[in-house]
Design a protein around this nucleic acid. Structure first.
Lengths: 339, 339
DNA sequence: GTGAAAGCGCTAACAT
DNA sequence: ATGTTAGCGCTTTCAC
């Protein structure tokens, strides 16, 4: 159903229908009513592309590819980006991938199809590198992309990340100052760049410290509450020692671990917990424990990613410039007691 | 810069440029390179509306108006809706309003401008009723809208909500079974429907119970962690009794309150906490306390809102049908001990 | 107050 | 392999 058909049915010209649609004052009230009636009857809605083409407006849409908007880390980032975008009159197309590669690909194609002006991309799990050919299409079409929080290596795009490696390294080193025979590590997913780098930072710290003197047991989770809980349960059940030193790769898993810990009312003579991340709630739960956490500037990171993208969108000369990789540091908060 | 200009600059026809854009195989490699070079040089990007108009595709976009995507409650809802939408090949335009009325209005106009197929709308604070005239435009254009989680009264739109009143009523009643002289209530915002109804349910329970025998002190927060913390601090500082009964209108403020509670290591002979809401973390923090919480089916609510919208979109006959208001119940979990 | 027609930027069938 | 051109659905100027 288009404007022409409506016009015919109403016995008027397309111009008149157009005037009705746009609330033009100089349409006889009777004509207007007649046209409106027909439009309702046929559930007519004007073609937005025709309107925008005709009016010469071109929209400013940016695509946002996110693995899991239900995750507080990402939803906060999305919030920041939304607010930045709103200020710049840019609209956000939200693509929630559940971390599935297939969807990332599909959504990228959709975004190209929508002729978005740019893309901010938080990948899920890393697939092998020739899986990311679909990104070349963005390159070819001059659509800037900025990676956020997680990286796909060896691709020539801008990106804004946390310096996971360094933070993890220092955090582990601090934790090891509490002498102990054994350290547990609940790692994140190794095929997510942040997970991998936290892992590598941990390993390096262990190496520098003196790997031989200390036993190390690593479990692998998926960055979510449940996995922290499950792994925590297993670890605690098998941990016969009176001391416990444990390092957990993110906030959510740390909370899960603490649930397991509290569930059985465990009690250790000495206990030290390191967490990559923090939150009000984590702080409350760790209150009486010996712990190290770190403040992750995720809002700053998100903001920066938008700024870089926006710059590229508005300054075409920038588009072909060398790509930047920006790393943010996090502040380590050491609350280990001194004994 | 349009296809015609590119064609002229490259000394080819528009058809050839179009072919290059669309990766048509039958273009001489040299021509292609020449055209691509010019496109890059002039930072050309084809007009999406012209393409879509020409190709006759009409898109399926649904607008999502959310007060605060950084809030876990809403981000979970957005996640559910995104996933539903993806299955139905519907794309989500995300509008984060910070709960500001002005932005709700602005975004609604934007969504109309984009000719979205429907809108899911979680309002911020309620303004006076003639502020919502802008929604009539949706009506006029036959664009279905579904309210989610929060209602604007007296408007003829569909909506899916929690039965805040009833849940709050029962929760309060249970809490009052613990005999006490005084009950504190940290209320949410009264110009948000959920806040108001929780308040009214609380009031009604008090009335039914026997209002005269019990002292009641109400503080008003904004549903956020910080306000729970601040109000909690004030309440605890002024509370000289050895017993404390407190009801808190949502999860986030309850966590804030607990932060205040833990900060000063308060200790009451008897303490009962009621929270409208729950979470893994809240459960952990309340572990040793006497408490009532309730499971809010926010994912179900979100899902339902999408289903209703989708039905209306695809079944125009439904559009004019009577509007539905759907209420969900939440399960109350009473963990008060029996003394 | 209404209509005719050009034009928005692109695609695709047809012609060469 | 490339060009010509009608047409996508709407807006808007100009004429009546």
């Amino acid at each position: 159903m288009n404007i022409k058909e409506i016009a015919k049915l109403a016995n008027v010209s397309v111009a008149t229908v157009s005037r009705v649609i746009n609330n033009d004052s100089k349409v006889a009230i009777t004509t207007k009513e007649k046209v409106v009636a027909i439009m309702k009857q046929f559930n007519y809605s004007p073609n937005s592309h025709a309107i925008r083409l005709s009016k010469g407006v071109s929209d400013q849409i940016v695509g946002l590819i996110v693995p899991d908007i239900g995750n507080i880390l990402f939803s906060e980032m999305v919030e920041v980006i939304s607010n930045c975008a709103e200020k710049e009159k840019i609209t956000i197309l939200l693509c929630n991938t559940n971390g599935e590669y297939e969807k990332e690909k599909k959504f990228t194609e959709l975004l190209i199809d929508y002729r978005v002006k740019g893309v901010i991309y938080i990948p899920g799990k890393y697939e092998n590198s020739n899986c990311y050919k679909f990104l070349e299409e963005l390159e070819a079409r001059n659509i800037p992309l900025v990676f956020l929080d997680r990286e796909i290596k060896n691709l020539n795009f801008d990106g804004v990340f946390l310096d996971n490696y360094t933070t993890s390294y220092h955090l582990t080193k601090e934790l090891l100052k509490k002498e102990s025979k054994k350290i547990h590590f609940i790692s994140g997913n190794l095929n997510i760049s942040s997970g991998q780098e936290r892992f590598l930072g941990f390993k390096k710290a262990l190496l520098d410290f003196d790997a031989t003197s200390i036993d190390c047991e690593i479990s692998y989770g998926d960055f979510k509450f449940e996995s922290g809980y499950k792994l925590g349960e297993t670890i605690l059940k098998n941990h016969k020692d009176k001391e416990l030193t444990i390092y957990i790769a993110n906030n959510a898993m740390a909370l899960g671990f603490l649930k397991a810990y509290k569930k059985y009312s465990w009690n250790f003579e000495k206990m030290a917990i390191g967490v990559f991340g923090t939150s009000d709630v984590l702080d409350m739960l760790l209150d009486e424990e010996n712990h190290i956490t770190c403040k992750v500037p995720n809002k700053d990171i998100a903001k920066k990613s938008f700024q870089i993208l926006f710059q590229k969108i508005n300054n075409p000369a920038q588009k072909n410039k060398k790509r930047k990789k920006i790393l943010y540091n996090s502040i380590i908060m050491n609350r280990l007691n001194n004994k």
